[in-house]
Nucleic acid binder design. Structure first.
Length: 417
RNA sequence: GGAGGCGUGGCAGAGUGGUUGAAUGCACCGGUCUUGAAAACCGGCAAGGGGCAACCCUUCGUGAGUUCAAAUCUCACCGCCUCCGCCA
């Protein structure tokens, strides 16, 4: 969230920003409610001040009692009104998005800019190619039918080389980012409602893309970003050195897949992900955002997967993101003719998330400031697997694993025959 | 699962109905001293909100309640610790 005062003092800026993001926010109503809230708050506080003074005074107890009870009744009535107004204002407040970087183009998804390419060129195939489902089933790496039987559509089993490939990918990614000072962390896969909201996710209602546990104040996490950032909620953290995590967790998303571009394991309800999170001083955030993007590019260059880098348009940014880069891998069989598919995403949330979660640090002057938070995907397992098996397939149906994964795979899995 | 105990400022730790937003120590900031540092000594130091300001309001795990008045009493919830039971 943004600072309340900042919002009220920069309404035009906010309105332009909301328009650029293609969002609907009841900003005028918010301003009106805030006005009412402050007026009521002042009345309530005046009554409380009077009651406090009375309680501390040396008046006779009987007088105190009579006057005090009267003040308390007045205060209770006004407080009731105040709570209603506050709740209404809060509801809108939570929908106000972060500001947007000047680099982010206005407009929706189609306005995102293709700004860079990976080192690996797109391969020309001189034989009819197969999609990841066919390839993985052939090599007994994937069992979609069993996933559907046991947990429903959108679930799957990784077997044999598939299972080992998940482990190899995550371990490779962790090693790579650990070398840049990221601490590996295995987090809970469940999280309480308040931290979910704090991180910017919606646990309930139509807009929710996440699972909630019936009877518990708990949700399956959509990303370990939630638990990694939530780890420091309500804390004053030491940012002499930035906090850098390499999180490993399962991720759960309830969104439904449809269309040929999402066949197989492109969009699933559960996947394993190695995630990078940085908590730093706001003035360092831009640099770390570039570091996260660089690490992502290094990982997919090493895996020899062709990709492009997108500067994400305002309309496709999450509410918390100030700026976002996506890496999209070339998936040769996607949608039949091949296509780009998102494999990573890195966002600079500036102080937006930290303000919600109350994560602060002490600056050089000793003052408390909100920290900046950033996140980026290292490896979100399913989609890179699609890219690897489709890009590395041979005319005879064998798959040659990227060299970078060899240290993480038994030798008999270096080439899947 | 049974029994008991605890949850106070960045940390440790006093405080059981009214002048306690909270003793004390550590940490931190400023100063004296010192060639410099340390030590010692002096002073400052919770957060959030409202107000031009004086100043006011809120916060002692969370929520509800009792009272003119709650860190302090009651209830519920959350978390932590100890012992017993159960068990990898």
């Amino acid at each position: 969230m943004l600072d309340r005062k900042f919002i009220l003092e920069n309404l035009d800026l906010l309105k332009t920003n909301i328009a650029n993001r293609g969002m609907q926010v009841r900003l005028d109503e918010f301003v009106q409610l805030e006005g009412q809230r402050k007026a009521l708050l002042q009345q309530v506080e005046a009554l409380r001040a009077e009651a406090n003074m009375l309680a501390k005074s040396s008046a006779a107890v009987e007088d105190k009692r009579a006057k005090g009870q009267q003040l308390k009744a007045e205060e209770a009535a006004l407080t009731e009104q105040l709570k209603t107004i506050e709740a209404q204002a809060e509801e809108i407040y939570l929908t106000i998005p972060n500001l947007t970087a000047p680099e982010s183009p206005a407009g929706g998804e189609e306005c995102s800019l293709d700004i860079a390419r990976g080192k690996t060129p797109i391969r020309e195939f001189d034989f009819p190619i197969q999609d990841h489902i066919t390839l993985m089933e052939r090599h007994k790496m994937l069992n979609l039918a069993a996933g559907a039987k046991v947990a429903g559509s959108g679930f799957y089993y990784f077997t044999g080389a598939g299972a080992l490939l998940e482990l190899a990918l995550t371990r490779f990614a962790l090693d790579h980012i650990m070398a840049s000072g990221y601490t590996p962390v295995i987090t809970p896969d469940l999280v309480r409602d308040d931290l979910m909201v704090g991180a910017g996710f919606v646990p309930r209602g139509n807009e929710s893309n996440t699972y909630r546990l019936e009877g518990y104040d708990l949700n399956l996490i959509a990303t370990s970003e939630i638990t990694l950032v939530g780890m420091h909620a309500d804390e004053v953290v030491d940012l002499t050195q930035p906090i850098k995590y390499a999180g490993l967790s399962h991720c759960f998303r309830s969104e439904r897949a449809h269309g040929s571009a999402t066949r197989g394991i492109y969009r699933v309800h559960q996947f394993t992900k190695a995630e990078m999170v940085v908590i730093c001083k706001p003035e360092e955030a831009e640099d770390f955002h570039l570091e996260l993007r660089r690490l992502e590019q290094e990982i997919y260059d090493a895996l020899e997967i062709p990709y492009r880098v997108l500067e994400i348009a305002a309309g496709d940014l999450g509410a918390a993101a100030y700026r976002k880069f996506d890496l999209e891998a070339w998936m040769p069989a996607r949608g039949g003719l091949g296509g780009w598919g998102e494999i990573t995403s890195t966002s600079n949330c500036q102080q937006f998330q930290a303000r919600r979660l109350n994560i602060k640090y002490r600056d050089e002057a000793g003052k408390l400031q909100y920290a900046a938070t950033l996140n980026g995907t290292a490896v979100s397992v399913c989609r890179p697997i699609i890219a690897i098996v489709e890009n590395c397939q041979q005319a005879d149906g064998t798959i040659i694993m990227p060299k970078a994964l060899q240290p993480y795979l038994p030798t008999q899995y270096w080439v899947l025959k």
